[in-house]
Design a protein around this nucleic acid. Structure first.
Length: 293
DNA sequence: CGCCAGGCTGTAA
DNA sequence: TTACAGCATGGC
């Protein structure tokens, strides 16, 4: 077991919240130890106050994966400043949510693993998505571990070669063909994701949305949770209902009509600033889980 | 049973 | 452009 000590300025950090808030799927907690897959490795992580115990990754990989170098003082300061300059007063609702989710970090996932995960996330719930990902790893993933009974994500070629019925046995339903087609594309365009990594937000989003099963929401998740675009704002049903209830007054919306996806995202970027993705996550993930509206 | 879930795709207006 | 049915399936 390797040890990482968090300095004062990296606190508070909440491993449980960061791994359970719906950014990543298939991770399981056994006692106080989390186990899951990152970047092709089986990983275990445990937090005891300011100590992080880990296995399966290098120290630098852990720091990167857990977002531990994110300047949280600057991030929350920037978010508050943008709120003030927009509102001319603090945002009580946001502060309530932030108080409940302080300590969370945006994870930096492996892009391919993140992409597969969020194609699987469409119109489902976090529990089911996690089961789905675990099944995909078990059924189609590459085995590793001491007894070869543990699995990491299948690479694109391997996933592209899976049968649709096989994938449907993993609770993927109608998402199965999306997985296969996207895997085939990535497999025949190796370097595609590396190129996307170098693009600025909007270009990268357009590029990702070429992939089957990837719309604006899934693309934003990959951009935020894997590609370090902290201004990406995934708008799912929860974020949508929060924005419609608490922030619709700021947006020019034609009454009785659904607010377009980009209108919500663009508002969040204007209201919360360049760290709108973090603000989104503070709003989405609270310790007193569920019962948002 | 009915409604919802970190939505996307295809089609019609 | 916008609207909307259809999609699989578990959770609750």
């Amino acid at each position: 077991m390797n040890l990482l000590k968090l300095s004062e300025k990296k606190l508070p950090f909440d491993l449980d919240l960061s791994l359970s808030c719906g950014q990543i799927f298939g991770w399981k907690r056994d006692g106080d130890t989390w186990k899951g897959v990152h970047d092709g490795s089986i990983v275990t992580i445990r937090q005891k106050e300011n100590l992080i115990y880990y296995e399966g990754l290098t120290k630098n990989q852990v720091i990167r994966f857990l977002g531990l170098e994110d300047p949280m003082d600057e991030i929350i300061g920037s978010i508050r400043n943008h709120i003030i300059s927009y509102n001319h007063e603090p945002d009580q609702f946001f502060e309530e949510k932030y108080a409940q989710s302080e300590g969370i970090r945006i994870l930096r996932q492996n892009p391919w693993e993140c992409l597969v995960s969020f194609i699987c996330s469409a119109n489902s719930n976090v529990r089911t998505i996690s089961r789905r990902i675990s099944l995909i790893l078990e059924e189609t993933g590459t085995s590793c571990g001491i007894n070869s009974n543990e699995h990491v994500f299948p690479d694109p070629g391997r996933l592209a070669g899976c049968s649709e019925t096989g994938l449907r046995r993993c609770l993927t339903g109608y998402r199965a063909p999306y997985l296969i087609k996207t895997a085939a594309f990535i497999s025949s365009h190796p370097g595609f994701l590396d190129q996307v990594k170098e693009m600025e937000y909007k270009t990268a989003k357009e590029a990702l949305m070429v992939l089957p099963g990837v719309g604006p929401k899934v693309a934003d998740c990959v951009l935020l949770f894997a590609f370090n675009h902290l201004n990406a704002v995934p708008v799912d049903t929860r974020i949508r209902s929060i924005v419609e209830k608490h922030y619709a007054v700021h947006m020019k919306v034609s009454q009785g009509r659904k607010i377009p996806y980009d209108t919500i995202g663009n508002f969040c970027r204007e209201y919360f600033g360049p760290y709108a993705g973090y603000a989104q996550q503070f709003l989405y993930a609270t310790r007193d889980n569920e019962k948002i509206k």
